[in-house]
């Protein structure tokens, strides 16, 4: 029988723990497909975060290191400096990890022009710990630690990491994408290809920010979540390429 579809080799057969309707599974698939299609599986070292993707080391079928919360870019730096320019080193981080506790590490990795690629999942909330406010949580958005909605006076406005990182000289490729539609999923895959390409071609630091869903902590169905991403997140977090050298 002819094979019409095959799961990528760069994912293990382990059943993922992500909730129904969660964007993580989609992005894992895209990252793994790009690794395989670029023929880089044997040269890849991943770095998993703390957060919902903490078990990413079980899913990506490559050598991988699990980092402390927010420290993935530093761990990736250490690995990349040892493995050299022929390797592909990527981190996979959520918004609590990258945009809160790990801001020093992500900004400084970009500042050094560290030749690593970062897959940044922005779902506007802390998933693993049960729905607390993230730096990316929208104004007025209710979470378990902003029960009356995020208040600008109390905790400022949501942070736009792609825009921030694009101002840094060492950044070679920065794009924000989303997984709310087939078209955007295809664009996300292309963005990952470009980010990995920037690393392989030794251009500098690369990052793809993926706007993603967290139905569980948003208190929405998977379909409602896709709608909320489009209606609430897209206006505040415009998609597009923020840096390309």
């Amino acid at each position: 029988m002819a094979v019409v579809f095959k799961k990528t080799e760069a994912l293990t057969d382990t059943v993922m723990h992500y909730c129904p309707g969660c964007g993580h599974g989609i992005v894992h698939r895209l990252v793994a497909e790009v690794i395989e299609e670029m023929g880089l599986q044997e040269k890849t070292v991943g770095v998993a975060p703390v957060g919902c993707a903490v078990f990413a080391y079980r899913y990506f079928n490559v050598d991988i290191q699990e980092a402390a919360h927010g420290r993935a870019p530093a761990v990736a730096t250490g690995a990349k400096r040892v493995l050299g320019p022929d390797s592909l080193v990527f981190t996979y981080q959520g918004d609590g990890d990258l945009a809160s506790i790990g801001t020093a590490e992500i900004v400084q990795a970009a500042h050094r022009g560290e030749k690593i690629s970062v897959i940044f999942i922005n779902n506007a909330i802390y998933g693993m710990t049960g729905g607390q406010m993230a730096p990316t949580t929208l104004l007025g958005q209710k979470t378990t630690t902003s029960p009356y909605g995020r208040d600008k006076e109390l905790c400022g406005s949501p942070i736009r990491m792609s825009e921030l990182l694009a101002t840094i000289e060492g950044s070679a490729y920065i794009e924000r994408t989303a997984v709310n539609s087939t078209a955007n999923i295809i664009k996300t895959k292309k963005a990952i290809q470009k980010a990995f390409g920037a690393q392989v071609n030794r251009k500098g630091f690369s990052l793809v920010e993926v706007l993603s869903t967290c139905p569980t902590n948003w208190g929405k169905s998977p379909v409602e979540s896709m709608d909320w991403l489009e209606e609430a997140m897209l206006p505040y977090y415009p998609l597009g390429v923020y840096k390309e050298v």
């Binding site: 761990v75 990349k80 040892v82």
Partner: peptide
């Protein structure tokens, strides 16, 4: 590194790479 925190995590990554 940008901090001692980052430095020790770079050590982690490099040690992890052998």
């Amino acid at each position: 590194a940008e901090s001692e925190v980052a430095a020790i995590n770079m050590v982690y990554g490099a040690a992890g790479a052998g």
